[in-house]
Amino acid sequence: MYAFHRLRATHVYFYKSCNFLKIELLKIFQTAPFSRSSQNCIVNGIQCSNEPWVVEIIVLHRQKWKHLCGGTLIHPNWVVTAAHSFFHPGKENQPFAPKNAYKVCIGSPKLCSGIQYNISAIHHPSFEITWDRKLVLNDLALIKLPLSIPDHLASPIPLATNSKECYVNRTGYIFGWGATTKNERDINDFSPYLQKGSVTIADNSQCSDITARLDDGKICIDCDQSPSVACNGDSGGPLVVKQENGRFVLIGISSYGDRNYENWDIYTRITAHLEWIHHIIKFHDVELFMNDQKNLIDTSLD
Rank of each mutant, 00 (worst) to 15 (best):
I149R: 00
I149M: 05
P150W: 01
P150K: 08
P150S: 12
D151F: 11
D151N: 12
D151Q: 12
D151C: 07
D151P: 04
H152G: 00
H152P: 00
H152Y: 03
H152S: 10
L153W: 02
L153T: 01
L153F: 00
A154Y: 06
A154K: 05
S155T: 03
S155E: 03
P156F: 05
P156R: 00
P156H: 06
P156C: 11
P156N: 11
I157D: 03
I157T: 05
I157K: 02
I157P: 02
P158W: 06
P158I: 06
L159C: 06
L159D: 04
L159W: 05
L159T: 10
L159N: 03
A160I: 07
T161G: 08
T161P: 00
T161Y: 09
T161Q: 12
N162K: 13
N162W: 01
N162V: 11
N162A: 11
S163C: 06
S163F: 05
S163L: 04
K164N: 10
K164E: 10
E165M: 15
C166Q: 13
C166D: 14
C166H: 10
Y167S: 14
Y167W: 15
Y167A: 14
V168T: 12
V168K: 07
N169K: 09
R170Q: 13
R170C: 11
R170V: 09
R170S: 14
R170P: 01
R170L: 12
R170A: 13
T171R: 15
T171C: 09
T171D: 13
G172E: 13
G172W: 13
G172T: 15
Y173A: 15
Y173N: 14
Y173I: 13
I174W: 08
I174N: 11
I174E: 10
I174Q: 12
F175N: 08
F175T: 13
F175A: 09
F175E: 13
F175Y: 15
F175R: 11
F175M: 10
F175W: 02
G176R: 11
W177T: 02
W177F: 00
W177H: 02
W177M: 04
W177E: 03
W177Y: 01
G178F: 02
A179N: 09
T180G: 00
T180R: 05
T180I: 14
T180L: 07
T181A: 11
K182H: 12
K182P: 03
K182W: 07
K182I: 07
